[in-house]
Amino acid sequence: MPSEGDTALLQLDGVQVAYGAIEAVKGVDLMLFEGEMVCLIGANGAGKTTTLNAIAGTLPLAGGTIRYRGEDLARLPAHKRLKLGIALVPEGRGIFTRLTVEENLRMGAYIRKDADGVAADLARVFDMLPRIRERLHQVAGTLSGGEQQMLAIGRALLSRPRLLLLDEPSMGLAPLIVEKIFEVVQSVREEGVSILLVEQNANLALEFAQRGYVMESGRITLAGSGRELLENPAVRAAYLGESD
């Protein structure tokens, strides 16, 4: 659990992101400590995905700072942030559909030179995702949505991230598959990878995460432990489908 003196693994201060003249993120403060799983929930268009993309470096900041282990990321392009240990599983999975499953996984290990380590991590990913091993030489575009999501997570793990950013892993998937994916996410966390999870399925996200932030129209409106947010009447009314 975080205490006052610790340096956060990830710290956002007043982060702003704009698409042209339209401000999508209007000043987000957020912290994540080593080993934590934190979720960011909110309605469609609240700016959750934009925030994740800014952390991963695929969108420029219009204001504020993003610090990772105390270092300001402003000048680092996306491909260098991965080397620091920040991996994003993008919304819609971002599978290379024309590459084979194996080639997708190898792309995940693109930055690594330690062939032995990659082989060991591949074996670990196969243990976690047995379906992926069966489809190794298949073109990735032929996988089902759930398999693609598994592949996207497995691919991100092959870069050996310290911080995994997950953007809507449940999107468009059947409940049974979603459950499996969250089991995988849980086991990744148990291996010591910190996770920032964006989800529309607030119930599920708050159940798994230790802490959560609620985002509305580009701003953080609520923060607390998963349990607190689950029990918060405003959250229940707005995101958990209850009216009272």
Binding site: T58, P77, H79, L82, A87, M107
Partner: peptide
């Protein structure tokens, strides 16, 4: 974009 996320320059 996704290639960049894999660390590709």
């Amino acid at each position: 974009r996704v290639a960049a996320l894999m660390g590709v320059d």
